[in-house]
Amino acid sequence: MALTSCVKSESRLETVMSCIFALGVTLASLFVIVGIILSHRSGTGLDLLTERVDFIHKSNFFRLIWSLVRGANMPHGPLLFVTLGMICLVLTPLLAVAAAFVHFILTRNLKFAVITLVVMVILLTSLAIH
């Protein structure tokens, strides 16, 4: 009985997380594919060994998003789309964890709300400090 109610209450969370993963990976793949096509059409991006990503160096994830929003020191063309794809990829699991946190708060499962919060704090700190 307890298991059945537990499974039922979590099925909504699993559906939401599943949608977040599907949306995130589709969006990321689309950006990356557009980046590859543009790179191929410009005829400059096929040599993988020469392509560098200096704009990322010494910049943490949130600073990277902020520069993208401001349009400062950002790449153009193919690399911009690949960067957007990478940002979507990184945000996908983060959003899934955030959804789990909201679910546990709403269902008053404080034990797992705390566990999820710890995971979220570690992930956010890691993205912010590096």
């Binding site: 990503v53 990322i56 699991p93």
Partner: peptide, 28 residues
């Protein structure tokens, strides 16, 4: 695995080891 990779990616992102044009074809 995905969340573990996210944590490690944050470290590699800042030190410039992440080659986006190398990553892109591999993702697809």
């Amino acid at each position: 695995i995905g969340m573990t990779a996210l944590a490690a990616t944050s470290v590699y992102l800042s030190c410039g080891f992440l080659n986006l044009m190398l990553m892109a074809p591999m993702v697809v």
